[in-house]
Structures are given as C-alpha cells and as structure tokens.
C-alpha cells in the first residue's frame, strides 16, 4: 500500500525562482517605504482642510445653481459648442489622415507623414496643447476648440486607420479586379465597411471631448472648466458642487445617448 504526501504548497505562478520572488517583494516594500517617506505631509494643513472638506461636501449635497447661474450657463454653452465644433472638424480632418495612415491603401511616404501626425497628436496631452494654444490665440473657447480638434485627429485617425487595415481584403480585391481607380476603391470597398464604425467612434469622441472641455478651461481655454476654476478660487463650494453635478449629469446623458445612438445606427 503506497503512502501519499501530506504536504503540498501551491507552486509559484509567475516568478518561479525563489530569489527573484523574494527580491521583488523586498524591492516593492523598500520602494513603498521610500515613496511614502518622501511625502511631505503637513498635518496642520490637513486638519484645517477637514473643515473645508466638510464645507465642500455640504456644497455638493446642497448645490447652489442660482447665484452664479449666468456664469454657469455661459460656461456650459461654451463647453457644448466647443465639443460639437471640434468633434465635427476633428473627424473631417481625421478621415484623409486615417486613410493615409492605413498601410494597405496609402503609399509609403504618405503613410509615414500621417502616422507621424497621429503620433504627435497622441503624445501631447490636451492640457499641454491647450496651454500653447491659449498662449497663441488668447483666452477663450477658440483655443479650446483647436485643442480638442487636435486631440480628436490623433484618436479618430488611428482607430480609423486600424479599421481600414482590418477590412476584408477579398472585397477590396474584387473591386480592384474590376479595374477601379483608387478613389473608386475607397468609395466602394472601404467606405461601406468602415462607415458604421466611424460614426460610432465619432459619437464616442463627442463624449470624450465634452469631458475634456471641462478640463482645459482650467488653463484658460474657456468653457465650464473656467467657471469651475473661478468658483473654487473664490471658495464658493456650493456653486462648485452645482457645476460638478451638472458635469456628471451631462457626461451620463452623453454616454447613454451616444451608446444608444451607436446601437441605433448599427
């Protein structure tokens, strides 16, 4: 009669070497200690903050929409106009760039140019772009519009290019075989396949642009973000709470309606 082992340890899953495992855990621990150690926390300031935090929380729970309504409504209209115009313009510019950035339809040099445009647009953050546009074009929604359009180009072109690269080659071949020109190829083989996706992506970007429009106002690019910044600077937490609640509500509405529209259009 055989006897069976009475002990069993779960074999390590990722780092099978014992030294590595312990070294890694130790390194993580040391990092944590150091990272937390370099935090300079002023407890006095935080204690003071507790009271402010409560006031903000109260502001959030009893938001004040009325006393700053003019500023809020203006900021909202600016944000919404920025969002829509930048999405439309951004998508319109993205289409040629996206086609140019698809390896299967564009010549190599155009591909290189379009991909660099996409890379630049994606690497630069909205906020940083906004800072520059504000410096160049002055305060106000126009700088915000440019920022969001610029960011939209990177986002839509990249996804559009990937879609075009993923299309069914058989269909493209069939159209090519009829002796179609390049424009006809795009029109007959590519467009029907990527159009629904493009509309979906544009709606999605509309939603993102609204969220972003609330942020870039902080550096002077207009919109609800600027209003919020002012409210917080003035310690008007009840107005700030009202603005935040409106942002949350609008984002929710935008998200639901954009996903509904996407479903409807598909």
């Amino acid at each position: 009669m055989t006897t069976y082992p009475t002990t069993w340890r779960r074999p390590p899953q990722i780092f099978t070497h014992r030294g590595w495992r312990i070294g890694l855990q130790l390194a993580a621990l040391i990092y944590l200690v150091f990272a937390i150690g370099t935090l300079e926390v002023s407890w006095a300031r935080i204690a003071e903050g507790g009271e402010r935090g409560m006031r903000f929380l109260m502001g959030f729970l009893s938001p004040d929409f009325s006393s700053r309504w003019r500023d809020i409504s203006q900021g909202l209209i600016e944000s919404l106009t920025m969002t829509l115009t930048s999405t439309v313009v951004g998508v319109a510019i993205s289409i040629p760039i996206g086609i140019g950035a698809a390896r299967n339809v564009a010549p190599a040099w155009i591909y290189a140019i379009c991909r660099s445009i996409i890379a630049i647009s994606r690497a630069l953050q909205e906020i940083i772009v906004a800072i520059f546009f504000v410096a160049m074009f002055g305060f106000g929604p126009f700088a915000g519009f440019l920022t969001l359009s610029f960011a939209t180009i990177g986002f839509i072109s990249k996804l559009l290019a990937e879609d075009i690269e993923d299309i069914d080659e058989a269909q493209a071949e069939a159209i090519r075989a009829t002796g179609a020109s390049w424009a006809q190829l795009i029109n007959y083989a590519i467009q029907p396949q990527v159009m629904p996706r493009l509309i979906g992506l544009s709606l999605y970007r509309l939603d993102i642009n609204f969220r972003e429009s609330a942020v870039i106002g902080i550096v002077g690019a207009g919109g609800i973000g600027a209003t919020l910044n002012t409210a917080i600077d003035r310690y008007e937490y009840d107005s700030a709470g009202a603005i935040l609640l409106m942002i949350i509500a609008l984002v929710m509405v935008a998200e639901y309606s954009s996903s509904y529209l996407r479903k409807f259009l598909q």
Partner: peptide, 8 residues
C-alpha cells in the same frame, strides 16, 4: 483647495 498644495 481643501488640503493645500502638495503631493498628497
């Protein structure tokens, strides 16, 4: 605004 400037 609540906690003061800093990493925290």
């Amino acid at each position: 605004a609540i906690l003061g400037p800093g990493l925290l």
